[in-house]
Design a binder for these strands. Structure first.
Ligand code: ZN
Ligand code: ZN
Ligand code: ZN
Ligand code: ZN
Lengths: 166, 166
DNA sequence: GCCCGTCACGTAATAACATAACACACCAAA
DNA sequence: TTTGGTGTGTTATGTTATTACGTGACGGGC
């Protein structure tokens, strides 16, 4: 198990947490949002993982860092992050992940590896999404879309292949 | 609130429950699956609603009908129904709904009205779905996809329009 | 007949996820 | 100074889901 990828590629993780937090800081400045200590720490926790964390996982770490230890502490921070585009909730997992493309308004799509638990956030082109076509033909107005696929990531497929060979 | 539509249209509900159950019966016969009393009743309960029901809602009704009253009773029945294509779980709602197109192997897409709680199951063409395109380019192998859109259904949009006029 | 494996069903207990309600601190506007 | 808003913390509770364990029904070997 290697719960490390963005997308499913290895990457230099050394600076991406700090960079993402700094960008969130700037964004909040501009938008008049308060990236308070709990909220910032929650974002860091998500960024440190690059996989989906349950609210209680986040809570445990926040609590270790001296923040409150009760569920609302985590849920409120996660709520702020998701409402403002810094994180997403993966419905299939009841878990949260840092946004891989913050700043843009976007409809994220997620690829969830059931073998190694990695989660990749893909960009989508909302205009020719399947759901929008359906919505057009039925007259439904979409406000939010959930696109999540479970399966096996390239890395785990490769490992399977290797396993098969021996 | 009119929690009645399939898709979002009114329909003759008189026979559809019985028909669907009968078809499920046939399908199970052919496939060597046991549509036992609890499972059949759970399917009926979902069909009687045409909207998403929580597992505990289903459980309550099963229990009223003399079946067990503990969570696994409902979860096991719902598990059977979803695994075999007679029902789907709506991840966004943590709730279950009878399949509107049983028999076919399909990747369902759901339109969830946040005003009236109606849920429509749309057919999708998996081959040019967004997720498959993403999967192709990233080398991810999809085993299951979740496609759910929240928004406002045609009926509720019409009502809004009417409300605005007065 | 009996032994066994499998499957469905039932229970109790608990885990995991999420929200309601209330108190206090802080800060800025009136 | 008072007042209102926002953020953080708490306790308590609600909701969703699973684990663990035991029983009865059925079918195939022996
Ligand atoms: Zn990173
Ligand atoms: Zn993987
Ligand atoms: Zn019907
Ligand atoms: Zn509606």
């Amino acid at each position: 198990m290697d719960p490390n990828p963005i997308g499913f590629q290895k990457h230099d993780h050394s600076h991406c947490v700090a960079d993402a937090v700094a960008e969130a800081d700037r964004t909040c400045q501009k938008a008049g949002l308060q990236l308070t200590p709990v909220r910032k720490r929650a974002l860091e926790i998500l960024l440190e993982e690059h996989r989906a964390l349950g609210a209680y996982d986040v809570l445990a770490r926040l609590s270790e860092d001296g923040f409150g230890s009760q569920p609302p502490v985590a849920y409120r921070a996660l709520d702020f992050l998701t409402k403002n585009g810094f994180a997403h909730k993966i419905e299939r997992l009841n878990a949260f992940i840092a946004c891989a493309h913050p700043g843009d308004i976007h409809t994220p799509a997620f690829l969830i590896c059931t073998t190694c638990d990695a989660v990749a956030e893909a960009e989508t082109d909302p205009s020719h999404s399947l759901l929008n076509q359906i919505a057009d033909t039925t007259g439904f107005r979409i406000s939010r879309a959930v696109l999540e696929a479970e399966g096996t990531c390239p890395n785990c497929l490769a490992n399977d292949g290797a396993a098969d060979k021996k």
